[in-house]
Simulated scan of single mutants.
Amino acid sequence: MWNPEVFFQAAEIHRSAGSDRRAAELLALSVADPVTPLEAPLAADGQRATLVISDEQLAAARTTMYERVTAALLDEHVNLDARLRAATGEETTLRETVRGRIVLVVQALRPDFVRDEALSLLDVNSERLHAAGVRTLLIAQQPAPAILERSGFDSRFHQDVGDQAWAGLRAWREVQYFVLDRSGKLRHRGEDPEAALRISFVLSM
Rank of each mutant, 00 (worst) to 15 (best):
W2P: 11
W2V: 14
E5Q: 12
E5S: 13
E12W: 02
R15Q: 13
R15T: 00
A17L: 13
G18R: 03
S19I: 02
L26P: 02
L26E: 11
L26K: 09
S30Y: 07
S30R: 08
V31E: 01
P34F: 00
P34C: 03
T36F: 08
T36S: 13
A40V: 10
L42V: 04
Q47A: 12
A49P: 00
T50G: 07
I53K: 12
S54G: 14
Q57L: 05
L58G: 11
A59K: 08
A60M: 11
A60Q: 14
A60G: 12
T63Q: 15
E67K: 15
E67S: 15
T70V: 07
A71T: 10
A71N: 07
L73S: 04
L73T: 10
L80E: 04
L80R: 05
A82G: 14
A82K: 07
R83N: 05
R83G: 11
L84F: 04
A86D: 15
A87L: 09
T88S: 15
T88N: 13
E91I: 11
E91C: 10
L94C: 06
L94F: 00
R99D: 15
R99L: 15
L104V: 01
V105R: 00
Q107P: 03
L109E: 01
R110Q: 08
R110D: 07
V114W: 12
D116A: 15
A118F: 01
L119C: 06
S120G: 11
V124R: 12
N125I: 02
A131F: 00
R135L: 04
Q142R: 08
A144E: 05
I147N: 15
R150V: 08
S151P: 04
D160G: 03
D163P: 02
R173Q: 15
V179K: 00
G184Q: 11
G184V: 13
R187K: 12
H188F: 09
D192R: 13
L197M: 03
R198M: 12
I199P: 04
S200A: 14
S200I: 05
V202E: 14
V202I: 13
